[in-house]
Design a protein around this nucleic acid. Sequence first.
DNA 1: CGATATGTTGAGACCCGTCAATTAGGGTGG
DNA 2: CCACCCTAATTGACGGGTCTCAACATATCG
Lengths: 242, 242
Amino acid sequence: MPNNENELIASFTRPEVSALLKRGQAALLAAMSSTPAVLRRGQILVEMDDPHEFLYVVESGWLARSRTINDGRRQIIVIFLPGELCGIKTIFMSRQPDDIEALTTASTRRIHFKDACDLAAKDFAVAMLLAWQLAQDERRLHNWTVRLGRANAEERLAALLLELRTRLKRLGLNGVDSRYGLPLTLQQIADHVGLTPVHVGRILRRFREQASVVIANGEVTFLHKSAALEELAKPVMDIVGE
Amino acid sequence: MPNNENELIASFTRPEVSALLKRGQAALLAAMSSTPAVLRRGQILVEMDDPHEFLYVVESGWLARSRTINDGRRQIIVIFLPGELCGIKTIFMSRQPDDIEALTTASTRRIHFKDACDLAAKDFAVAMLLAWQLAQDERRLHNWTVRLGRANAEERLAALLLELRTRLKRLGLNGVDSRYGLPLTLQQIADHVGLTPVHVGRILRRFREQASVVIANGEVTFLHKSAALEELAKPVMDIVGE
DNA sequence: CGATATGTTGAGACCCGTCAATTAGGGTGG
DNA sequence: CCACCCTAATTGACGGGTCTCAACATATCG
């Protein structure tokens, strides 16, 4: 168990911490399967209720933890972006009631949870990285709990678009500040924010008409009145802009 | 970092595992402050955005992680019952955007996160317990994400009442199977399930009229048609009945 | 006994869902 | 290059679940 992660989140930009995390990430990545598995959109990496034994890193594409109810309702619980780890809880539980699925064409590499444990025991930076990612995930879940419980459609969508912007930026995956790729369908967005695709479409039209954002051709583009978006989302954004 | 928690959740009742968890709990509790801090209802244990350094165990009463928006909206993100640990993420982050507050009169004992880490490093059972509680918390957050995103008022309330029943039973805190103490106001329930107190009251009346459950005098009592509740909640309950 | 917080009930409004029709887009094969 | 198909996106009309507001009842506590 790692022993001094305090101040981690508060110091996203502190060079010595991010350096440690980068070292841990490098060590873990080096120990992962070298040949990536390729997934088609909609393909399921880990089936719900199945025992599973691996942690994964997203190489390219977007993944998600999702739960589907037999009457057709579906909730995307967490989105995993390229470079992020998923399935860390595999270390602690052999089965979970959710799928991990590919939201887009994607590729992943993996490591057996026992190997990951051994590595973490030997290399503190790896333990640090794993703990850090877990804490990140839980913080994000807290944010979405607040949004799904108390925020309206506009606030949820504004929060989603802004959260993805800061996450992609932090991962170094968006070229320009005012634009990023969003490879999700309205249905997938709706399943994440707890709305219907029809209503998501209506809210996005409203945003477009207000000149806040346009989302077209799989690209989000912030317009000159995007401050209105930030104003909308502000009550449900956390300290680090997610 | 612990190294063989696999099968933990799947084996809630496996005697050797629960024995290990009990040992870990005993060791951690023994290291905690011996004089409990007493909290009045509504009192805040950890203020949002404040740096904090302690893990807590609930001795008596109910606590919650809650987030309040300045316009008055409020979301209870997680409920902590007597015997459960809260603030474990303190080990990893010095500040979080939520309060930890007393939902009822409550008492807690605490331990500095560094001491908890040292203990976990020496005693595997403690590390096990901490990891197990974290995994528990995250699984519960997943469940509530699904419910807040996709379940209607009846399903959310049915799920809440049943989840609390199984959690209290597991903690050994309910005498009879068909009855348990629920020390929450309609407002607090509403803040947890993402509804208004008025609507929560209406749904509970419906439950009462259907002879599913009565909730009166701070007690939940399941009636002869409580199977209807389980039917309602089933689509949004996880494997272990939470 | 009064004061305050909490619970109950009703009427009306609003946000979002449902359903259905239409358009647009993206790939495939001829 | 076009015809075709299938999926995704758009739009409108309508209905319903939940919220809002306000009045009243009840419980709690000094």
